[in-house]
Design a protein around this nucleic acid. Structure first.
Lengths: 207, 207
DNA sequence: GTCTATAACGGGATAGAC
DNA sequence: GTCTATCCCGTTATAGAC
């Protein structure tokens, strides 16, 4: 738990490279399906050399999740800002749900390796013994908090948290199918979800 | 491709037991994260004894998917029947989308181990080298075919296939979060999705 | 900072006895 | 049908040289 904004932590370029390679390989084959040798080979150093930087496989995965996946994006910055808003957020400052998810899809479309990492770990880490188990528990809790926060601009009569959670889950789902079959882009897939989840007859003016 | 209904294939009770244990362990730790020793131990035989029945780990997973996961349920039977309907399906024989998914959720609620197996393999098998890769490719194709078939009873102006696909993806998503945190039941979670995806103002009379 | 060497163990699969 | 024993390979991690 850090009480102040952490400076862009200095990361040894070799560590950076190791994390990038690891993110890709963990994403492709999972934690159990990836060996340190695979990673070392791709980085171009020996297994022992690799362990010199990361100390253990467990720790490597944590490094990857924290340094690679948790890069703050523009969308998440906006949400985080509103969460800290003092008092009730006025209507004109609230975020539009469809726009938010559209931007999320747009961002994720550009980083398929990280989506792959997320998707693979998300399922693998259902196991309490998995090194990323806690990470995803906390992530789920954080997501729920965002969904229930009064920061969203939506039509009267719409149960905002439920719609938010549904949209998050649908996003998880289309990411899997997108990764398996990239013939249709992620944004195309999201378009279909958007039309289903935010029908114009209800969401006109709130898109 | 089988041209006739296959008789309920005789399965050696020991094989049945092996498949059950394997389904659970593959679901919990994934294919790569589960060893034949783990399975043999839990069954109560030796590794060699286990391999006598299943010939290889690859093959064991295929057996599990075919024998355990593909058990036909009442919902799927109804769909399959309608898919083979001769000519256009009349409105009164069509299936109601919300009811269909509600039943799906109800069934899956009762078989968490199989949902777990599905969820874990679904992500792990994104990798073309994974033994279940083809299985899930075909499954995706079959699902899409169902979504696009003219067998659904829905309000005018609703893009049925898109809604179907969205519902499938949302179901994948809530299954993951349900498995991670069973505090809320799968059906409770689906209720929220249902309210979001099938608002009464549009779906009245089509639920 | 990176290497080779090695420890110590677990993996899948096979041979052959009973 | 099930076992023990074995093979051979891959795994993570450590020790110590350069």
């Amino acid at each position: 738990m850090e009480s102040h904004i952490k400076p862009i932590r200095e990361i040894h370029p070799r560590v950076r490279q190791i994390e990038d390679v690891s993110a890709t390989l963990f994403g492709e084959s999972g934690y159990y399906g990836t060996s340190l040798r695979d990673i070392a080979e791709r980085v171009g150093i020996s297994k022992a050399g690799l362990l010199h930087y990361v100390t253990s496989k467990d720790n490597l995965l944590c490094m990857v999740l924290n340094d690679c996946y948790d890069q703050p994006t523009r969308v998440n910055m906006a949400v985080r800002e509103l969460l800290q808003y003092d008092g009730p957020v006025p209507a004109d400052k609230r975020l539009r749900i469809p726009s938010y998810f559209r931007e999320l899809a747009t961002v994720n479309e550009q980083r398929p390796q990280l989506v792959r990492l997320f998707t693979t770990m998300n399922a693998e880490a259902l196991n309490p013994d998995h090194p990323a188990y806690e990470y995803f528990r906390e992530r789920d809790a954080a997501l729920t908090e965002v969904a229930y926060a009064d920061i969203w601009y939506a039509p009267d009569g719409v149960a905002t948290p439920e719609v938010m959670m549904t949209a998050y889950r649908a996003m998880d789902g289309i990411q899997i199918s997108w990764l398996r079959n990239p013939e249709h882009t992620l944004l195309e897939r999201w378009d279909a979800v958007e039309r289903s989840l935010f029908p114009a007859s209800i969401w006109e003016g709130y898109m």
